[in-house]
């Protein structure tokens, strides 16, 4: 039995989209790993602190947004750039097997970790057959 997590189509754009803050919105890199108890989702959002994360669950659509902090050292001007800063957004669709009420989230060093426990009803159960 495999837990299904699908990515919602419109969130997969490779080009950054402009958010309402007039900063680019990036699609964060994600790891999804399924263990015995459920699914662990990790998302890379450098520049986002714990207070900048917004997790929204509407039915089974999980939307994760991160508000990035802009690093602009005072008295410096940019001379060379390999990465751009901005906000993050990615949308996932959960299967029914996730216990939505028990989702836990933690943010450390710019990485969001979401624990999505499998719903009790979805856990495999051993049915004992008694001799009559």
């Amino acid at each position: 039995m495999s837990t299904e997590i699908r990515e919602t189509e419109e969130s997969t754009a490779a080009e950054p989209v402009r958010g309402d803050r007039d900063t680019p919105v990036f699609r964060p890199r994600a790891d999804i790993r399924e263990g015995k108890g459920g699914v662990t989702l990790t998302l890379e959002m450098p520049g986002v602190g714990p207070e900048g994360v917004d997790i929204d669950l509407d039915r089974r659509v999980l939307t994760i947004r991160g508000r990035g902090r802009v690093t602009r050292p005072e008295g410096f001007r940019q001379a060379y750039a390999e990465y751009a800063e901005g906000d993050y957004e990615r949308v996932f669709t959960l299967s029914e097997e996730i216990d939505e009420a028990a989702i836990r989230a933690g943010m450390a060093n710019g990485v969001l970790t979401l624990e999505l426990p499998r719903a009790e009803a979805a856990k495999p159960r051993r049915i004992e057959v008694r001799a009559g």
Partner: peptide, 11 residues
């Protein structure tokens, strides 16, 4: 974790 399965691996 031998029992864990990667569903997506981008990092």
């Amino acid at each position: 974790d031998d029992e864990a399965v990667w569903l997506r691996r981008e990092r």
